[in-house]
Simulated assay, not measured.
Amino acid sequence: MRVQEIWRYPVKSMAGERLSTAQIGPAGVAGDRMIQVRSEQGRLYTARTRPKLLRHRGTLTPEGDALVDGLPWQSDEVRQIVESAAGAGARLVQGPANARFDILPLLVATDGMLQAVGVDTRRFRPNLVISGVPGLAEREWEGAALRIGPVLIGMEDLRGRCITTTYDPDTGAQDVNVLRRIQREFQGVLGLNSYVIEPGRVSEGDEVELIQP
């Protein structure tokens, strides 16, 4: 097995960026979900209720500054983009490290699962995609770990999928049948909620070892 893809989402609920290499620590991929969309009252907005956010892309500069559609995240242009996508008064804020993630800091997916489902990988918003995994073998990985060079990742449980999977990452068009099929054929769970046991750097192509409990 090998690391096939590495993804980072600097702005929570926006499209992210594929990386060739990344530092992984207790807070997952460095720079992941560092910026959030919130209302004037501080309420967190996500793509579950504000799906237009998915049409915009968050990236990081080499210096670690967040961009939205190539523009500085604190610029007036981005403020207008965010309000258009999430509603009047919506704004970007830098989120605390302990509140960036819905569940755990990493989401691991596998090529076998993605082939079985047959829709765009980006609908599932993984951090790591592991290749060389037959079929739905990932469903036997709960409680196991992945060794990638110096990095050790623990996999807690399968991820329950939500309405976000129904939106096309390019057009924004919704197809609720995607989630209905996930619920019907895959019991509503795909990919694995994961956490970092030992930090370090991973790169596309790195060898991956499965360590069963």
Rank of each mutant, 00 (worst) to 15 (best):
D120M: 02
Q183E: 14
N193Y: 05
T164Y: 09
I148T: 01
L128P: 01
N127D: 08
G172Q: 00
T121S: 04
G143I: 01
D175L: 04
R181N: 06
T166K: 09
V189C: 09
W141P: 05
M155H: 00
F186S: 04
V196W: 11
D120C: 11
E140I: 07
N127R: 04
L190W: 10
R184Q: 13
L128K: 01
R180D: 02
M155F: 08
G160T: 13
T171W: 03
D111I: 12
Q187D: 14
L179E: 00
V178N: 09
G118C: 11
D120L: 07
F186H: 02
E138W: 00
P134A: 12
R123F: 03
R180K: 15
V189G: 09
T110E: 12
R161N: 15
D111Q: 15
P134C: 06
D175F: 02
A145C: 07
E140G: 15
L190P: 04
A145L: 13
R159S: 12
S194T: 03
R125K: 03
R123E: 02
Q187C: 10
V151Q: 05
L152K: 05
D120W: 14
Q115H: 09
S194P: 00
Q183G: 14
G132K: 07
R123T: 02
R122K: 05
Q187F: 11
V133A: 14
I197R: 11
G112F: 07
A145W: 08
R181I: 11
D168R: 01
E185Q: 10
A116N: 09
T164R: 03
A137F: 15
L179H: 00
Y167T: 02
R184T: 13
L146F: 07
V178W: 03
D157H: 08
D120T: 11
P169G: 03
G135N: 08
R125D: 04
G149P: 11
D157A: 15
E198C: 13
G112W: 07
N127T: 01
V176R: 06
V189I: 05
A173Y: 11
D120Y: 05
L152G: 00
T110V: 13
I130W: 08
F186T: 01
V176C: 10
T166S: 01
P169I: 10
E185R: 14
D120V: 14
R159Q: 11
R159C: 10
